[in-house]
Simulated assay, not measured.
Amino acid sequence: MKALGAEFLGTFWLILGGCGSAVLAAAFPDVGIGLHGVSLAFGLTVLTMAFAIGHISGCHLNPAVSIGLWAGGRFPASQLLPYIVAQVIGGLCAGGVLYIIASGAAGFDASAGFASNGYGAHSPGQYSLLAALVTEVVMTMFFLIVILGATDKRAPAGFAPIAIGLALTLIHLISIPVTNTSVNPARSTGVALFAGGWAIQQLWLFWVAPIVGALLGALAYRWIGSEDR
């Protein structure tokens, strides 16, 4: 239960910090943090929580990561569902808190986006479904490779949170224009349910693509990271 509580709190922090920066601060008049600031915010949430709860739950904060770690032989199947439930609930609670805060401003309209992920007309750069699919699969694949590599017992000890946080920052710098960056079904779900409409209709992609990418990343690392010669 402590591990599940840690996953709940960690995922809450990820969505509140990352999506909160996008909703509240990205385009704030004259001093908005923009794409670079939002990218850094997502990376910082993972970096800080990895140091805070990594020793308690492993700091997955992401159903795709949990599934990828299972496929990579680092996580038991029996814990997959409880972890995913805790992550999704954490994301939804963070989305609710963010909704309450954001709705305190005049003219707020969650249906305009609310940091939701999308493709086609709802992609920041109007990218197609195929482009969004490929982006999410590839970004999540490399995210898992970094996670598995940085936490390998042969890797330098104590530096994994930094590598993983910076990897997530880089992923956002690349893919915010395409999908607003998911690589995390809990992150997508946490805000989509408050945005409603199109965000819920397109949510399927941001479950399927990250999970496929995570499985590919796990398979790739099991091959390159094998100690067999």
Rank of each mutant, 00 (worst) to 15 (best):
V23P: 00
T151A: 10
F42K: 08
V46H: 09
L80T: 06
I145R: 04
M141Q: 06
Y127T: 01
G96P: 13
A77C: 07
F28L: 05
D109K: 10
F114V: 05
T135K: 06
L129C: 08
L144C: 01
I53M: 13
G118K: 01
H36Q: 12
C93V: 14
C59D: 07
M141Y: 02
L24N: 03
P156Q: 12
H60D: 03
D30V: 14
Q126W: 09
A41P: 01
R74Y: 04
Q79P: 05
A110M: 00
F143I: 05
M139I: 06
M139F: 10
T48Y: 12
S116I: 13
F75L: 08
Q87N: 09
V146C: 03
G73H: 12
T140D: 01
A150V: 10
V137N: 00
G18Y: 12
F28E: 05
T151S: 07
G107Y: 15
F143S: 00
G113V: 14
V46E: 06
S116V: 08
A41D: 04
F159C: 08
L44G: 05
P82C: 09
A41C: 01
K153R: 09
G54E: 11
A26R: 04
A131H: 09
G37D: 06
A115S: 09
G113Q: 07
C93Q: 11
F143H: 01
C19I: 03
C59E: 01
H55M: 06
F42L: 12
S78H: 09
F28D: 02
V85I: 15
L80H: 09
H36L: 15
G32H: 05
A94P: 04
N117M: 04
S103V: 02
L35K: 14
L129W: 14
R154I: 00
I56Y: 04
S66V: 08
L61R: 14
G68K: 00
G73Y: 08
G149N: 05
G149W: 10
A132R: 04
L144F: 01
A50K: 14
I67S: 08
K153F: 09
S57Q: 13
L92N: 08
F142E: 03
G68L: 03
F159M: 12
I101V: 15
G72F: 00
V65L: 11
I56V: 10
S57L: 11
G18R: 15
I100F: 13
H55T: 13
I145E: 04
G104P: 05
S111C: 11
S116G: 07
V97Y: 09
G149Q: 00
F159W: 15
C93T: 13
H36M: 12
I100M: 14
L69K: 05
P29I: 06
G54V: 07
A105S: 10
V46F: 14
G58S: 02
I145N: 06
A26D: 02
A86N: 15
T140C: 10
L47A: 06
T151I: 10
V138E: 02
A86P: 12
Y119G: 02
A94H: 05
V38F: 15
F114E: 05
G58P: 07
A157S: 13
L92D: 06
L81D: 12
G58K: 08
F108G: 01
L35W: 05
K153W: 09
I67L: 14
G120W: 11
V134T: 04
Y119F: 14
